[in-house]
Design a protein around this nucleic acid. Sequence first.
RNA 1: GGUCCCGUGGUGUAGCGGCCUAACACGCCUCCCUGUCAAGGAGGAGAUCGGCAGUUCGAAUCUGCUCGGGAUCGCCA
Length: 599
Amino acid sequence: MYKDTDCGEPRESMVGSQITVAGWVHRRRDHGNLIFIDLRDRSGLLQVVFNPEHGEKAHDLAQSLRSEWVVQLTGKVVARLSGAENPDLPTGGVELSVTDLVILNRSITPPFEISDDVEVDANTRLKYRFMDLRRPRMQELLKLRHKVTHTMWNYLTEQGFTQVETPILIKSTPEGARDYVVPSRVHPGDFYALPQSPQQLKQLLMVSGVERYFQIARCFRDEDLRADRQPEHTQLDFEMSFVHQDDVMEVVEDLYTLIATETVPETTVSGPFPRLTYAESMERFGTDKPDIRFGLELTTITDTAASSEARVFQAVASSGGSIRGFVAPECGNYGRRQTDDLTEYAKSSGAQGLVFIAIDESAPSIDALEDEHVKSPLKKFLSLDVIKKIATEMGAEPGDLMLIVAGTEKLVNTVLSNLRSEMARRLDLVDSKELAFVWVYDFPLFEWDEELKKYEPAHHVFSSPKAEHMDFLDTDPGKVIGTLWDLVCNGSEMGSGSIRIHDKDLQTKLFNIIGYTEDQISERFGQLLTAFTYGAPPHGGMGLGLDRLVAILAGEDAIREVIAFPKTQSAFDPLFEAPSRIEQQQLDELHIRVVMPKT
RNA sequence: GGUCCCGUGGUGUAGCGGCCUAACACGCCUCCCUGUCAAGGAGGAGAUCGGCAGUUCGAAUCUGCUCGGGAUCGCCA
């Protein structure tokens, strides 16, 4: 070893001992005859002092030291001079008085300072990711992620799970997201696909009798990126045989509570996790991933609003749309600027407009509302009676602002759920120290795709319909509820699970409903259906996003921060400059000809 | 595919039609300095303002296109 002690270790109790440390020059303070260096390694910072009286050669050499040089230092741990202690450092009571210095490597001037305080351009950070990761915060995030996966391994092992690796080179099943694809050399013209998730594989493992499987699995999707979406992401993927919904939820609830309490003890996790049906979540929050850390719940006022003189409301209601809204408490005094701002926000989510009704705080009560207490752009179309009724339905009080959106139900929900989050931010209603997990369950199995004029799986095709809804499969697939659920935390989808279908005929029936031909079914799912005919146990499981979990635990918005080597929004890796061209010879071997797009 | 924001020395910012032959902080280089810890002092180097095309007597500053980054809608079973 180049060192016998880590930089973060020395304490007053070690004064007098001779140690050898090695690390990076974090900062240098050269006083001429006295040189201080903050030496950094993964454990922290240690001040070392070069004094010619204690090591003349080392002191001379130390004059050449620069930021990020790698050095090995031997010397004696000494107590700092009285008054020269640094209370900000764990090692601040002592320092290393150096007798010997070995320069292990030099560094050219770093592209940016290795410090948490410096905001560096995202591209530069990724191009020099190996430097970026030297920052204490990034080291912390890497360790946090490790701790989370370590806890997962330990916990699931204790619970009798077996970790099984599944192939990365597998088969394209082109429903859902776009596949990343890998050409085959030995099978000209054929391609593997990288898994979007190990879904079929883990179900096959259940048929294999593994009973309890898990994997920290890499998943690949060739879709546009977001702060919380990378082309490759990691899932805690697990599957269990002979279980019901509650059994699966219990495992996750215990595991995630354990992870949260072990890794971020300063946050609060309330358990048991609340449960909402999909229908209830949509009704109350307008989304299937509600942030339940704050109220601002939605109310439907379609009938009341349509009974007014307002054409917008009448038109929407008569065309089968809905009119909904929520109350922004104590925002009745919002000025033009603020309401314009909110309208802009609503429009960016797709709304045609946003209707306000402000109730002045001088109003004695909703019942005693007078004309002068109401401000609204639609005021002349809304009778006082209608306004009173709307306010009562929505639960508005004097001083409040009602935000109302009209349109198709889907649009109204999208707009209002976004607006709800935005208002929570503006009103500072979010406790950042809270992890509000919530189960959303009873998802419908299918969604009607208006463009394709057919049913699409709402989550995925392998989820089991509720026993009592089997008849709807033939009569009205849109009504079928699946044994299908999501885990949501602070408004983010953390993962999705279901009790799977383990019957060949039922699975085939579902494929038929979403319009797959017999050929497509056997081509894509033949292996699974065949397996089902050999005694498949009932089973269910989940896929849970690891990157999002770590990001939420860390309080980071972007999963980029918790991935060691992420890609930019255009799926580019500035460090490796991937993707890139390959040699013609490689293309030839793969029987591939590149046709560039015309520009 | 759409919308929005950003792009100035190594890093982070200021400047937003002529006062800019571009300013500030950090970093970098040289020298001085035995108790600093964002050390201090003196001096110095370093960007033509992402790229291209326009508008203008004149552009870092205005316009268009383009490239790159970010946010977001679509998309993401």
